[in-house]
Amino acid sequence: MLEVTSLQKSFDGFKAVNNASLSVKEGEVVAVIGPNGAGKTTLFNLITGVLKPDGGKVFFKGEDITGLPSYKVCRRGMSRSFQVVNVFPRLTVFENVQVSVLAQQKKTWNLFAPSAKLAIGETERILENVGLVDIKDATSAALSHGERKVLEIAIALGGSPEFLILDEPTAGMSPEETTRCIDLIKQLKEKLGITILFCEHDMEIVFSISDRIMVMVRGSTVIEGTCEDVRCCQEVQDAYLGGSDACLM
């Protein structure tokens, strides 16, 4: 479904992403792991058109989407959540998700119908799914960090994506919130059949929900394979998992 080949991106000569490759098949959950600053977020920005790559290609559903602006990428069925909370602070929780649904339904050129009567059911369903329905009238700036991270995902779901990118979805969440978030991600895969690409620091989470893992170090792909492959890979041990000697983690 997604095919990324040797992507490159430099910031002022610093190679943030250098030869990253990745492939995700329909229905899979794929994790990208790597130390802080490895270039995971930059990679996601390149895939989703937030940044333009200096080199390399991105194919989505067989079509070249390299360098397309975000709104076009989104319209092809790809959504994402952001690592740093990136919601609409002055809008209510409900409106945050609703505007995403309206955009997906291509209604943003409609100048005269009242928003208050549109996309209600769809928005409610998403809020119910992610568990935000009780606080739907709160302004999003008033939410806790954990709630805002969930709202992040809810906004992404507003686009009815076939393919969803989650950038550290559980970062900064309490243990209970994290458990609920993981359940949500599993549900998205199993009930809605969404293909998921995500990155995450917590190895336990990564190994528990991913079908495959890509390891990134200093902007490059080190290995891409199943959880077993990655656990046993010497380079990963050295570069990332702390150099412990065994294949036992």
Partner: peptide, 15 residues
Amino acid sequence: QGIRDNPVRSEMIGV
């Protein structure tokens, strides 16, 4: 209003 609050996110939801 979404754009006012967050243009990057607006673009990412297809606006």
